[in-house]
Design a protein around this nucleic acid. Structure first.
Length: 272
DNA sequence: CACTCTCCCTGAAAGC
DNA sequence: TGCTTTCAGGGAGAGT
């Protein structure tokens, strides 16, 4: 599932479309999480891709005409670049065609993602961007900032990590991995996390996410970056989806928090 | 405002 | 084997 490392991997795989000129756009399905704006075709046609970047889990494709395409992959979204002899597959909802004959395809079986187009200068005003906390890989992220945000919170740290308003980019899989790495119990309430543990947590956030990016993203089954290469971080999951696995003299336990599965080692993650 | 829960959707996997 | 049910998860929106 696309979390920060998968989004980063996708963007790196998209570099082949940089500077390319768009010849056409095809919308096969406009009803994703939100409707794809009607004016997107007109704005995209004859534009050039000037830059590719990431804000948390959002992919930003900047155009040369002061507009930016915003793509969120939701849970099952993928972007792939293919050549002109490509045959459309099921769930290919949106296609950008380039003069070079290359195609950029948005593929999303569950349609939880969305595609938007906004004036680049208005990007930060979009409510889905505006509400985001600091990016999980931002060098500016400090334990003090997190402490101030969670020191009164009765919410368990696992759920806090998923809250994009506090730290942006972490999803359900890496939340478990990060907590295991920092030896913090997912059940710890925000208000009970002392600053030294938050420092440890931030170290683990950076370590786990960077490692996942290095391995090309992961995801549950068959995460592929935009150039089609298979992410292989999943073989590096220590606890996620590993219920019953022995680690030292402990065993991975699965619990459900707020309707989401959490995997952890009760004896190892025992900061009580 | 802060928090919790449901729902959107499809395909894979489990259950029968 | 094959049909049916359950589960997975990001985040908006409703409800408390």
């Amino acid at each position: 599932m696309p979390e920060l490392p998968e989004v980063e991997t996708t963007i790196r795989g998209l570099s082949v479309i940089l500077k390319q000129k768009i010849s056409n756009v095809k919308i096969h399905t406009s009803k994703l999480r939100f409707k794809i704006p009607n004016n997107i075709t007109n704005i995209l046609r004859n534009s050039k891709i000037s830059n590719l970047r990431r804000i948390a889990k959002f992919i930003i494709i900047d155009l040369d005409k002061d507009y930016s395409v915003v793509i969120h992959l939701g849970m099952s979204g993928r972007l792939k670049t293919v050549s002109s002899n490509y045959k459309r597959a099921k769930h290919d909802h949106f296609v950008i065609c380039f003069l070079s004959k290359k195609l950029l395809i948005y593929h999303d079986p569950r349609k939880f993602g969305f595609i938007d187009i906004v004036k680049t200068r208005d990007l930060q005003k979009q409510k889905y961007i505006m509400s985001l906390g600091l990016d999980a890989l931002s060098p500016d992220l400090t334990a003090q900032m997190i402490f101030e945000k969670i020191s009164k919170s009765e919410v368990p740290i696992k759920q806090i990590l998923l809250n994009q308003k506090i730290i942006a980019g972490i999803g359900n899989i890496y939340a478990s991995e990060i907590l295991f790495d920092s030896k913090i119990s997912p059940l710890t309430l925000g208000k009970n996390l002392e600053i030294s543990l938050i420092m440890k947590l931030i170290k683990s956030i950076r370590k786990i996410l960077k490692k996942a990016i290095k391995y090309g993203g992961s995801t549950i089954r068959d995460y592929r970056s935009a150039d089609g290469t298979l992410g292989n971080f999943q073989s590096n999951f220590r606890v996620y989806n590993k219920e019953g696995k022995k680690i030292g003299n402990d065993k991975v336990k699965k619990i459900v928090q707020y309707g989401r599965s959490t995997f952890y080692c009760p004896k190892i993650q025992n900061n009580w």
